[in-house]
Amino acid sequence: MDRDDLQRSYALLGLTSDANLREVETAYRQLRELFDEASLATYSLLDYADRQEKLESLQIAFDVITQSRICPLPQDEPPVTSDTGTVCDPRTTPGLHLQQHRERLGLSLQDVAERTKIGIYHLRNIEAQNCDKLPANVYLRGFVREFARTVSVEDVDAVVDGFMAISRQPTESN
């Protein structure tokens, strides 16, 4: 991945590189919906193959951006409660999903580190989806699972899957 790829990815989502992860997720979700097979607003604008390609390019742009993120934690954002329905998707933005759950419980990263016995360095990189600095998959899987349980994530497997999907290293299982 190079800088141009990254620029193009932001442009594709209609964003600039100063967008935060939450904005990235929202833009991605809205565009996916707009170009979905069932969307009335793009009915007949694209044929089947073009639509699939469009959706795929959105997916790639989203992945490129989330993987490039280096710890830009929005520390002062208000806690998100589950009944507002704005909790991020555990598969597409697992780091943000973990962060939201942690904040909802009013826990700091230090708190989570003490409870899980996982280094705060790793926890921070996990939340930020900082792919360059994530531990090897064998460790990552266990860390994420532990982190997710500690902050009461409902669907722990989804978060683990989400991280396996964005992790750069080949997964050992497939």
């Binding site: 209609g14 707009l34 969307s39 607003a41 793009t42 604008l45 694209l46």
Partner: peptide
């Protein structure tokens, strides 16, 4: 209300296309 959003969505789609 979906009808109201339709136009704005089509404008976004046209900008893209």
């Amino acid at each position: 209300s979906e009808d109201r959003e339709l136009g704005a969505k089509m404008v976004i789609a046209c900008r893209d296309f």
